[in-house]
Design a protein around this nucleic acid. Structure first.
Lengths: 105, 105
DNA sequence: GAATCGCATAAGTCTCCGCTTATGTATTGC
DNA sequence: GCAATACATAAGCGGAGACTTATGCGATTC
């Protein structure tokens, strides 16, 4: 929710990788565990941290817990970046190009 | 330089505040120390970390060391965000508004 | 040239955090 | 209903990191 939580949650490489994986598709805890080289509790702990930071949402289905990335959770980070991007003109142009490309769809 | 370094460097609140301060203006180590509630060595250590991550540059002048924010250092973070912003359409519109505002200058 | 100043580095402490194994709690299958 | 499955929580361990004080080193001042 708050910027420090966002930065902290994404600072750990494993946890960031979990988040990135969840941007591709929803996954259960055991499915995630199978893809990483840490234990199931470690994955659950990472998910709890990501969830607390608002970067992930949980969907319960029986004994399964499906997680997916929550894009809004990146808002604090995007806002922060945008603030400090303003003193960085060259970068803006690059972004404009990206957005231009999006318009062409 | 690399994304993990960028995230790690900015994860600490004090260090992030130092970086933010240096986006406003160049400052010497002692000037920075005066503005924060940690010791001079702590500031020097934070600056070393920021410098290693490419987020800050150093300018030597006699016995003084002046530091300033290096915008290019944010590139890894911006690139990362842009990748995961693509699956997040609503946010794009907000960005467009920001850029539109910049064009009006 | 001796003392001082600005900063970096060294060394040690303490807290946080990512991981493990062990266990608890639902839910499902037989 | 009992075993197995899916996940969370507990407890403990080891390492990383943010801080301190102490010290070293070049540049400046007198």
């Amino acid at each position: 929710m708050m910027l420090p939580d966002t930065f902290r949650a994404l600072a750990d490489p494993t946890r960031r990788a979990v988040f990135e994986r969840l941007t591709a598709s929803e996954m259960s805890v055991s499915q995630l565990t199978a893809r990483f080289e840490v234990s199931q509790p470690a994955i659950s702990q990472h998910l709890a941290t990501l969830k607390a930071a608002g970067l992930v949402t949980e969907r319960r289905e029986g004994r399964f817990a499906y997680y997916r990335a929550a894009p809004e959770g990146l808002a604090p980070l995007v806002d922060w970046i945008d603030r400090y991007r303003s003193f960085w003109p060259e970068r803006i142009d690059r972004l404009k190009d990206i957005l231009k490309g999006l318009d062409d769809d």
